[in-house]
Each structure stands twice: as structure tokens, then as C-alpha cells.
């Protein structure tokens, strides 16, 4: 298992390199000369050459790619913004923790709310509670995040004045951004959990568990839940990407100085070094989430664990099937 994890981590290197090359190439090929954009009209050839050299844009494709990779690998340096001349790495260090906190809390809310509500909904199938939760989930899942955010803002921020409408300065101010970011995911996790749970409790092995005289609670927690989690882990992994995409909107609406606003502004200004850096960071996070998802699978499902173990040490393959 440890071997498998190390292998997976090593695999991330070529994947990240691939993403890096693709991202860099796209921005390289994008029409428009950043130097002219920055200098505006009325520059001299000397000024142009100086700026191009400063931005590393005078070296040709491979030269630029090489020094970009070198900078990231050796100094964790993503370059500088075309416009503000601020170091991107420094900006990341300031903004990423905010977005990460929003994302992590969002995922926690998503699991802590979505999972139990889904289970409840399944166990009490066709009850009033089930129908109510289903309707709420459908509405939340169907409503785009920004609509939810604006509705929340207008109702709780402007009308009722319960919650602040911008920033993240007080604990209270976290409520609206977190809620609007996490709610659609809560709804989806809930629906998924309900479906899986209903599927699992129809299985033969649950009937076997009942025939043993186990209490409904033991059946639910010991026999059904883990089986039901396997597909949910996949969905949760996917949700992480959704939460991150959602953070662009949320942060802009609530004016939060995180990665979302940074990236949004950079895209609007065509500040390619920032965009590239953000994309790389997102790719890295997605890779990590995938790894975590796979590890979770293995922890829960012995069939998958066995596959990992055997792919790690093929030579030690045991003949498992004994003739009965």
C-alpha cells in the first residue's frame, strides 16, 4: 500500500510537467504581444527590448519554457505579474490560505450535512422528511451558485442585516460565502448518498445481516454505510473541483481577497503568468484530491486494496483460489 502511494506521488511529476507545458504553450501561442500591451503606444525600440528582456520574452519558445520550469522547480517562482510587477508566489502565499480555508470548510460542511441527510432520506424513504429533503436538494442543485449567493446577500445581508456582505473579517462573515459555496454540493452529495443507500439496503448481504438478528443500527453503520461510501468518494472528489470553481464566483461576489478574485482579475487583464500559475495550482490540487480519493477507496474496499497490493508485488502473487 505504501509502495502504491509512493508510486502514485511520483506519477504526479510527469502529469504536472505535462500540464505545465500545455498551459505555457497555450499562453505562448495566444495572439497579442504582452510587451506592447504593457508599454502602451509610443515606446521606443530600446524600451521595448529592455521590457522584453525583463519579462524573459526575448528568448524564444524553448528558452522561455526552460526558464519558467527552472524558476518553479528551483525557487518555486511563478514569475511576476505583467502589470503590477508583484511576485506571483508572494501573492499565492497571501491568498491561497483564504481560498483553501473556504474550500476545506466547504467540503467539511458538504460531507457533514450531505451524508447524514442522505442516509436519513434513504432510511425514511417516502416519508414527509424524505420528500422535503428531496425538494430542497433539487432546488439547491438546480440553482446556480451565484443566484444563491445574491439571494443570500440580499436577504441576510441587506434586508435583515444579520450578516456582513463583504470580506472575511469576522467569523460571521464566513457564513454566507461558505453556505453559497457548499450548498449545491451538499445537495448533490445528499442525493447521491440517498440513491446509493437505497441501492445498498436492497442487497442480499443486508438481508443476510438481518437474518442474523442484528439491530437496524448495526446493519446501517457496520454493513451498509461503508458499501454506500464507495461511490460517494468519487463524487466528493469531483465536488472539490466544483468548490474551487465556485470560489471564483463566491469570492468576487463577496469581495474576498483569495485565489478566485486574483484569477478572475488576471483573466480579465490577460495577465498570463498569473493565469498559468493558477491553472498549475488547480491542476496540482486536483491531482492530490484524486490521490486521496484512490487511497480512500483502498481503505474501504478490500477488493481494491488487493489490486493495489498485487500490482505492487506481482512476483509474490498467491494462488488464492483453493479447490473446494
Amino acid at each position: 500500500m505504501a509502495k502504491y502511494i509512493i508510486k502514485r506521488i511520483l506519477w504526479m511529476i510527469p502529469v504536472m510537467l505535462g500540464v505545465l507545458i500545455i498551459v505555457f504553450t497555450i499562453s505562448y501561442l495566444t495572439p497579442g504581444d504582452p510587451v506592447i500591451t504593457i508599454l502602451g503606444s509610443g515606446y521606443t525600440p530600446e524600451k521595448y527590448a529592455a521590457k522584453a528582456a525583463e519579462l524573459n520574452l526575448d528568448k524564444g519558445y524553448f528558452g522561455q519554457l526552460g526558464s519558467y520550469i527552472w524558476g518553479i522547480v528551483t525557487r518555486f517562482d511563478f514569475g511576476k505579474s505583467f502589470y503590477s510587477n508583484l511576485s506571483i508566489t508572494g501573492e499565492f502565499a497571501r491568498r491561497f490560505p483564504i481560498t483553501a480555508a473556504l474550500g476545506i470548510f466547504g467540503c467539511i460542511i458538504m460531507v457533514v450535512l450531505g451524508l447524514p441527510l442522505g442516509i436519513l432520506s434513504a432510511v425514511k424513504q417516502y416519508s414527509v422528511l424524505d420528500y422535503t429533503l428531496t425538494v430542497i436538494a433539487l432546488v439547491l442543485a438546480a440553482m446556480p451558485g451565484f443566484v444563491l449567493a445574491i439571494l443570500g446577500l440580499v436577504l441576510f445581508g441587506v434586508r435583515l442585516r444579520w450578516l456582513p456582505i463583504t470580506g472575511l473579517d469576522t467569523p460571521k462573515s464566513w457564513i454566507l460565502p461558505l453556505a453559497t459555496n457548499a450548498m449545491p454540493c451538499v445537495a448533490m452529495i445528499m442525493r447521491q448518498t440517498r440513491t446509493n443507500m437505497l441501492e445498498v439496503i436492497r442487497q442480499d448481504y443486508i438481508r443476510t445481516a438481518r437474518s442474523k438478528g442484528l439491530s437496524e443500527r448495526t446493519i446501517l453503520w457496520k454493513h451498509a454505510l461503508k458499501n454506500c461510501l464507495i461511490p460517494i468518494i468519487t463524487v466528493t472528489g469531483g465536488m472539490v473541483a466544483m468548490v474551487m470553481a465556485g470560489s471564483i464566483i463566491t469570492e468576487n461576489i463577496f469581495n474576498i481577497k483569495g485565489m478566485g478574485t486574483y484569477m478572475y482579475a488576471a483573466i480579465m487583464q490577460r495577465d498570463y503568468p498569473i493565469v498559468n500559475g493558477c491553472v498549475l495550482l488547480i491542476a496540482f490540487i486536483v491531482c492530490c484530491v484524486n490521490l486521496i480519493v484512490d487511497i480512500c477507496y483502498a481503505l474501504i474496499d478490500p477488493r481494491i486494496r488487493a489490486r493495489y497490493a498485487s500490482s505492487g508485488k506481482k512476483h509474490k502473487k498467491k494462488a488464492h483460489k483453493e479447490v473446494t
Partner: peptide, 26 residues
């Protein structure tokens, strides 16, 4: 009362052994 009968005084072997056991418990 029923639970204390099941598996204790009356137990059952089901039609299909392939699906009768929980895949994630030893």
C-alpha cells in the same frame, strides 16, 4: 424478540452465496 430468534434459534441460508456475504467485511 424477533431479533433474538434470528440467527440464534432460526437461521437461514440464502439462495445465492455469491451475494450473501458483505464484500467489505472479513
Amino acid at each position: 424478540e424477533m431479533r433474538s430468534v434470528r440467527g440464534n434459534e432460526i437461521s437461514m441460508i440464502f439462495q445465492d452465496p455469491m451475494t450473501a456475504l458483505n464484500p467489505i467485511l472479513t
